[in-house]
Structure formats: C-alpha cells, structure tokens
Design a protein around this nucleic acid. Structure first.
Lengths: 171, 171
DNA sequence: GGCCCTTGCTTTCATTCAGAACTATCCCCC
DNA sequence: GGGGGATAGTTCTGAATGAAAGCAAGGGCC
C-alpha cells in the first residue's frame, strides 16, 4: 500500500462521516444483546435458569454424560463459566457430577431425573421463542442470516488465530 | 391446542434431539461475542479505549455537541454506561463536558482537539477491521446479513414492547 | 521409579455491569 | 408562585465476569 493512495483516500472519506448506526459490528452486538435479553428473561422467569445454565443443560441433556471440558467446547464458554453453571445446577439437583473412573482429574456430568424433566420443558419454550423471532423474517432471510453467521463465525476464528500467532511472534 | 395434538407432536420432536449448535439465538450470541472481542482487543491495544468509550467518541465526534441522553439513544447504551464512559473520556482529556445553558439538568459533550485527533485515527482502524471481517463473506452475503439484522432488531423491539405491556397488565 | 511438565477443574480476586436509589432541575397546574 | 410529578445524570450495591492462581492427577522421559 503506497502512502499516496492512503492520503488520497482520506479527504473523500473523512472521519466525521462515520455512522455508528451503519457499522455492522456495532449492529451485530446490539441485536445480539436484544435477542439475548429476551431469552434470558424467559428462562429466568419460567425456570430460574441463567443462559450459561441453560446451555449446560442443553448439551448435557443431549449427550447423556459429558465432561465439563467438552461442555465448554460445545457451548463456547470458558471453563470458569461451565464450572459455575454446573455447580449451580448440581446444587439445584438438576445435574449429577461424578468422578470419571478412567481419569482421576475428570468429572462426568449427567442429568438427574429432575433435570431431564426440566430439560423436556425448556426445549419447547426455547423453540417457541426462536419461532417467534423467526416470524420477523422471511424463510429466505432467516436462512441467509444463518448462513452468514456461520461464515462470519468461521472467519473470525481464522482472524483470532492470526492475532494469536502475531502475539506469540512478538515475544 | 388440544392435548392430543401436543402428545402426538412430542415423539417426533423429543427434547433429546435439540441441537444447541443449530439454535440461532445461541449462534448469534457466540458470533457477536467473537466479533466484539476482536474489536475490543484492537481498540484497547491501539488506543486504550473500551467499546462503550469508542461508541461515545463515535457519536459525539459525528454530532459536534450532544447530550448524554441522546448519546444513549444513538449508542444503544443505558445512561449509566454513558455516564461512566463519558467520565472516563473527560478524565483523559478527550471530551469536554459542560452545562446545557438551556437546561440546568442537562450536560453537553463535545470532543476536545485531542479527542478529535484520536477520533480521526480510530475511525480508519474501525473501518479496516470491518473490511477484514467482510472478507469472509461475499458482498451478497454481507448485504443479506445487514438486512436480516435490521429486520431482526426491529422485530425484537416489538417483542420487547409486547412483554412490557404484559408486565404492566400483571400488576 | 521419581522428577517435571501438562491437563482438568475449582477457587480467588479485581473489574464490570445492570438495576435501584439519589440529587438536582424543570414543568405543569392549581 | 409553590407543590407534585417528571426528567437528566450520577452514585451506590449486589451479582456476574474473566484472568490468574491453586490444586490434584496424569504421563513422559531420564
């Protein structure tokens, strides 16, 4: 990139014309927060669940038995969040935590009967809420959103990796 | 909805088949968090700005002079967040806060020369980062994402309003 | 077989956050 | 023209968060 090209670009694109409301990263964050708030409120009011707890419930419910580390991968949460959510679910008798017989460090999470029952109730609620959300868009738009999110997510992972490599190289 | 219809629906749609990784609200939150982290890191490392601070800077920079409440509307932040971000920017000499001469309660925010300079530097960085993000998608996909987000956001607002009305009615 | 580095998870701590309470000012209406 | 209620911003408080330390157990490697 030549310095001249950069200089030429500035005048026709001054900072003053920057519109936050058109800035996609901002809009993504705002919309995501709005959606999350709707779901959070519903889970909290109806079942006393936080979003991390709901995520743990969802993946443990699907996989019978699961280690906290795998739960972390499946729910995109760090291990601290998983640990806290799991502890809370155990305290409420929704999840049972036991030693992994094959690895003394590992734990195994599994739904209790009570947890399974709750899970069976929450899932339809979640689906209904998602459906309500989808009503605002055409099927085509919904599919396009889904696809765009997948690609964006994948692309972000590669960007993140690039930054990590740079950070390491800086040492 | 008849009880029989509900019973019939359950077997072909059991809770156990719920896949969190296909659940759009979840995917939206994950991707949004990933994008935000990339931007957050960049703003923090290069300019020592948090995202709330960057947002305030962006709208105040665009509008010359602005009240905190309008900043809140334009940045989708509550007044507490605006207040803190503004205080931090004032402390760093990037923003000047003064009394609104027409309203003793109101304040007016305006960029200092230093703030204007910083703003002029951050905007190109933000745009470049957005561009990097956009490289992961085709133009069509990017446009579709933008459009879908707008509709989803608008739809969420109506859902939120509905819930507020219900909450009031419950009193 | 014992040292040490790694891994799996929990706990701690300092920061951030959202909601509620608080202060100051304005405006409406009697 | 003075109370009552609304509005603009700030401060307070309890909960949530993430980074880093802590702890326990596995697995090389000599």
């Amino acid at each position: 990139m030549k310095a001249r090209a950069k200089d030429a670009a500035l005048p026709r694109d001054p900072a003053g014309t920057f519109r936050l409301e058109d800035f996609l990263p901002y809009r993504l964050a705002v919309t995501s927060a709005r959606v999350s708030r709707i779901f959070m409120r519903s889970y909290a009011e109806q079942y006393g669940l936080t979003i991390p707890e709901w995520r743990v419930l969802a993946v443990v419910g699907r996989h019978e038995t699961l280690s906290p580390s795998v739960v972390g991968e499946l729910t995109a949460m760090d291990k601290v969040k998983v640990s806290r959510a799991a502890a809370s679910l155990v305290a409420r008798g929704l999840v049972k935590q036991s030693q992994d017989p094959e690895d003394g460090r590992g734990r195994l999470l599994r739904l209790t009967r009570k947890g399974t029952t709750l899970f069976g109730r929450v899932v339809p609620t979640a689906r209904a809420l998602e459906e309500q959300l989808a009503e605002g868009l055409s099927r085509t738009e919904w599919a396009a959103l889904s696809r765009a999110l997948a690609k964006l997510d994948a692309h972000c992972r590669t960007l993140d990796i690039d930054e990590e490599v740079e950070a390491e190289a800086a040492d």
